[in-house]
Structures are given as C-alpha cells and as structure tokens.
C-alpha cells in the first residue's frame, strides 16, 4: 500500500484523568481510506483515544493533525472538527424522544442549516442502503440493538464525515445481531471511508483491517498488518493479550 498524505497524524498525545494517565504519548498516523483497528484490554485507552480524536475529551498534551489542522489546539472551535470526524458509540446513544429519521435529520438541520426536504432524499437513501427503510419512523425503543446501532451509523454518516470512529460498536449487541453491524462497516470500508475502530471482534479485525494497533496502559505497544500482529507479534504483552482472547 502506498504512503499517501496522512489523513490523521497523532504526535505524543497525552490524556490524564486526575492523577491517572490514560494516554501516555500516543503516536499514530492514519492514511486516507485506511481502516485501523485498535485492540487491547479494557482500560487500555482505546475509547479515550477515540473520544480525544472527536474532541469529546480535551487532550492534555501532544498534537493531532487532521490534514493540516491541529485539532488538539486548546480553545479551537470543535464544531467544524466534529463534523469532519464522526463517532459511533458502544451504547448507540440515539435520542430517545425522536424517531430514527428525526435522529438522522437533527444535526444536518441544526449544524449544516439544511432543511428537512433537502435532507430527506439523502436520509432515505441511507436508510434503504442499510436495510432500515421500514424502520425510519420508529422510535429507538421499538428497534433492536443492531437496528439502533445502524441508525446511529447513519446519523453520523448524514454529516458527511471524512473520518469515522467506531467505539466498540458491537459490544452491547446480542451475538446474533453483531453480523448486521459488521456488514455495514465492511460496506463503508469498500467505499473508501477512513475508519478507526476500537474493537474486541478479533476475527473481523483480522479479516478487514488494513492495520492493527495494540494498546496497553495508554501506550501504543505494537502495530502492523493483521497477519503480522495476529501471527507473529513481537511484544510479549501483545502475545499474552492475543492468547487470552483467542483461546
């Protein structure tokens, strides 16, 4: 794979929660159209890293370049950055007082100033594409977990982000519903979306990721292609982690 101009470039990203250092100098570069999977034990800092990228958690130190814009700059207006970097959460976080369609239309209307009519065709196309056309007018509590998560993905896509972050998006799902969400991720990869996933789905990561990053205690310990990481990890901790997961 060619080294294109990097879409995202992190240098020495540090994040503390009080005395606890959650990210201890993360360096990571993600190219346009690349799919990077973050793996590692719970509490290793995967989720925090994603939330920092989206600006939900302010970074304490280091730089994060989105193209040529340093989005870790303190005091930066994060609204426009968040439009460019979408995030989908483990617990869906749909707005329970709105139906699926309204969930998707809200941000484009409020942030991009689009009207309902302007957005309607696009939204319908997204719902249809991800097999949810029949569920557009249902409320979140009337949808299954897998359906809710797909709506959440559509909601993020409606803002036309350049990068998508997925924070363990299948962890809260019943096993039989995981597949439908992973299919959506594959589809997005196929159309060239730049994606970073924090995931426990090792088989999926191995099958589709361009690159695997192993995080441990706030540090990026090892990264490489799925083949390298899963077949011949160099770091002892990576080996131990993979062993514990792939019994």
């Amino acid at each position: 794979m060619l080294e294109a101009e990097p879409k995202l470039r992190m240098r020495g990203v540090v994040k503390n929660f009080g005395d606890h250092a959650v990210l201890r100098g993360i360096d990571l570069t993600v190219s346009e159209g690349e799919m990077v999977c973050l793996i590692g034990a719970s509490g290793s800092g995967k989720s925090t890293l994603l939330r920092c990228l989206n600006g939900l958690e302010p970074v304490d130190d280091g730089e994060i370049f989105l193209d040529s814009l340093d989005i870790a700059e303190p005091g930066l207006d994060l609204g426009p950055v968040r439009q460019r970097i979408g995030i989908v959460f483990q617990s869906f976080n749909l707005f329970p007082h709105m139906n699926a369609l309204e969930n998707v239309l809200l941000a484009p209307r409020r942030v991009l100033g689009k009207t309902r009519d302007q957005m309607m065709g696009e939204a319908e196309a997204l719902f249809t594409r991800f097999g949810l056309a029949a569920h557009m007018h249902k409320y979140p509590d009337q949808l299954s977990g897998g359906q809710q998560q797909r709506v959440a993905i559509i909601r993020a896509l409606a803002m036309k982000p350049e990068v998508m972050l997925f924070d363990e998006v299948t962890s809260a799902l019943d096993p039989e519903l995981v597949g439908e969400v992973l299919d959506v991720l594959r589809a997005l990869q196929a159309e060239g979306m730049t994606m970073i996933l924090a995931t426990h789905e090792m088989r999926f990561a191995r099958d589709v990721a361009d690159r695997i990053c192993f995080m441990d205690a706030g540090v990026m310990l090892e990264e490489g292609t799925p083949d390298v990481i899963f077949s011949a990890p160099k770091n002892e901790r990576t080996k131990a982690f993979l062993k514990s997961i792939l019994v």
Binding site: R51, N54, G55, L56, L78, G79, P80, V81, R82, Q83, G86, I87, F89, S91, N93, L94, F95, L106, A107, R110, V111, R155, A156, M159
Partner: peptide, 16 residues
C-alpha cells in the same frame, strides 16, 4: 451525559 456527547459529536453547539 452520553446524550450530550452524542449531540456534540455530531458538531452541534452546546445551545442546540
């Protein structure tokens, strides 16, 4: 708080 986070993550303002 996750509701607020979801809104902000879409680029919406605090006010909105």
């Amino acid at each position: 708080a996750s509701q607020r986070a979801a809104g902000l993550s879409l680029g919406m303002s605090e006010r909105s």
